[in-house]
């Protein structure tokens, strides 16, 4: 599978920031501090199952995914 990680990262940033640019930057910073740098992923990146699982966990913890 490709690009699922990036899509989920985008979803986290979008939903958590609600379009507020300050919050989008902060959410991105929070992800990097958790070891997920959004810039390392694009829509063609082959998904690493371990990384994807970590991002899914973040999405659950932040209420973005149930």
């Amino acid at each position: 599978m490709r690009g699922r990680t990036r899509k989920l990262i985008d979803e986290i940033i979008e939903k958590r920031s609600g379009g507020d640019p300050t919050l989008a930057t902060i959410t991105r910073t929070k992800l990097i501090l958790k070891g997920i740098d959004p810039d390392k992923f694009d829509y063609t990146t082959v998904d690493d199952p371990a990384v994807l699982q970590k991002v899914e966990q973040i999405a659950r913890n932040t209420g973005v995914m149930s």
């Binding site: 958590r16 920031s17 919050l23 902060i26 929070k30 501090l33 958790k34 973040i58 913890n61 932040t62 209420g63």
Partner: peptide, 11 residues
Amino acid sequence: MEKIGDLTNVF
């Protein structure tokens, strides 16, 4: 801090 950041956008 991580837990706080997960649950709120308040700094």
